[in-house]
Design a protein around this nucleic acid. Sequence first.
DNA 1: AAATTCAGTTCCAAATAATGGAACAACATG
DNA 2: CATGTTGTTCCATTATTTGGAACTGAATTT
Lengths: 279, 279
Amino acid sequence: MERRRRGEAVVGSKRGEHMGDIRRGRETGTLGKLMALIDLVALADDPMRFTDILSQSDQPRGTLHRQLSHLVEEGLLETDRDGRYLPGIRLLNLASRSWARNEFRTVAEPHLRLLQAQTGETVHLGVLRGTEVIYLDKVEGRQSVRMYSEIGNASPAYCTGVGKAALSALDDISLEARVSGLQFHAYTEHTHRSVADLQADIAAIRARGCAFDREEHENGICCVAAPIRSDDGDILAGVSVTGPAYRVTPEKLQEWAPLVRAAAAAIMQDIRSRLGPRR
Amino acid sequence: MERRRRGEAVVGSKRGEHMGDIRRGRETGTLGKLMALIDLVALADDPMRFTDILSQSDQPRGTLHRQLSHLVEEGLLETDRDGRYLPGIRLLNLASRSWARNEFRTVAEPHLRLLQAQTGETVHLGVLRGTEVIYLDKVEGRQSVRMYSEIGNASPAYCTGVGKAALSALDDISLEARVSGLQFHAYTEHTHRSVADLQADIAAIRARGCAFDREEHENGICCVAAPIRSDDGDILAGVSVTGPAYRVTPEKLQEWAPLVRAAAAAIMQDIRSRLGPRR
DNA sequence: AAATTCAGTTCCAAATAATGGAACAACATG
DNA sequence: CATGTTGTTCCATTATTTGGAACTGAATTT
């Protein structure tokens, strides 16, 4: 009668907390199963052999084979010379358009640049998606390392400045709904360990108007972030200034807080006028 | 069973003309139809309303509605506040992984940096896909503008240095197969107008070991590029040095040609040793 | 205010594509 | 050579997608 549920049992295992997604309920049929496969391959640390995928997706061999063939055919996956599966460059191509014309990002960009100029440190823009933050943009200073590696990246909301800031813009009920049942991974000794920890922090963030990340996600990295929210609650995001702990001292964080809040406010103002209210 | 490679007949030459819309959808069943929709939305210059999509995909209303719902559900598309469809950020997220762990790109990266340091101009790495080039990486000098906008971008092979270089690494038969029937769009007054033009250029490129682009794609932009090919022909790509015509004079192009060829050679060598022969 | 168009949504029998089991290659490995 | 491992193909069964039509709801016209 009921076919087995896709996704759930399959994808999550690898690295704890991916998929804070809120897509319980609706099924997307064939597409959902294929996306679960893409996720599986894309999230893996190495190219996957057919058998690896077979063991982690509970599809029968024949079915899986056809599914993968279709994905390869469409360029969403590729095979290396050993026949192992990798994410395909078609994804890159689709993403570049998604990025270049993202309205929110476009509107925010000048403010990110200003904030970068004011602080001299790296500025991030990220949107909340479920309980993860996806970085939409990044403006770096002089010592530019690699850019792309961060854009499009998903990180847990509970241990990043942008993520916590965005969460703080939710009302209590929505917040509770999102974070309850969250798995906390101890990235550093400062990472929040429980929902209670997180909620306490978020109360402080609300009072203060900005979030701090003092080496919660990565040792030696600190940031200040402020929440961005559209009036209709459609956009839930954050902007942050990030840098190495030795440069970004607690005093600096305090000093930058107003600037970051101002940037967030300016972005919200621009959203209001440029993107307009719901028509 | 000899499936045909997709892309060939499809590749739009221009931005505006979203390829044959519903390409031969049947190849990958449901997925193919959905991907055609994503393409449609991603290639459009503006968000599309339901009706816009309806008129350009020959699906019945009910079907289209469900398809779009599924795509939105999976985050591949999004709707703005007017209900119009846009590419979704999930694409960005998937792509960032695709990019960060792309073996070829990773291997090439240090050589791109070296070439950038040697010339001081922007260095590109692109792979050939059908008759388009997709840019995999970019290393810029001082006056860094925006990065992401180029990575993942697809451009016609016939009017870009990287594209022509990559094409030159094909044997005559494969080349003929790819470029015959190609539509030539006159981006500038120097853009090739016909297969014959292109083939003549490619003969020269083969003899010379590198390709020039003297304002063929964009006015005021010139480049030198060299082909990259793996022994098994699996990888077909190119590396280039690009800059504004006033800085990148014909003499400079000549001067850099050996450097670009050397970079390409070094990348090929690394591919040979690092990615190893077919196991 | 009623009528008409337009834009989007829902429904369900019929068409079609996906499924899953099993058999089949192709290649290592003991 | 026997045996296991990995990947591929086939096809009756079954589930999913399809497409036409009917419905909503909002804007525009009469």
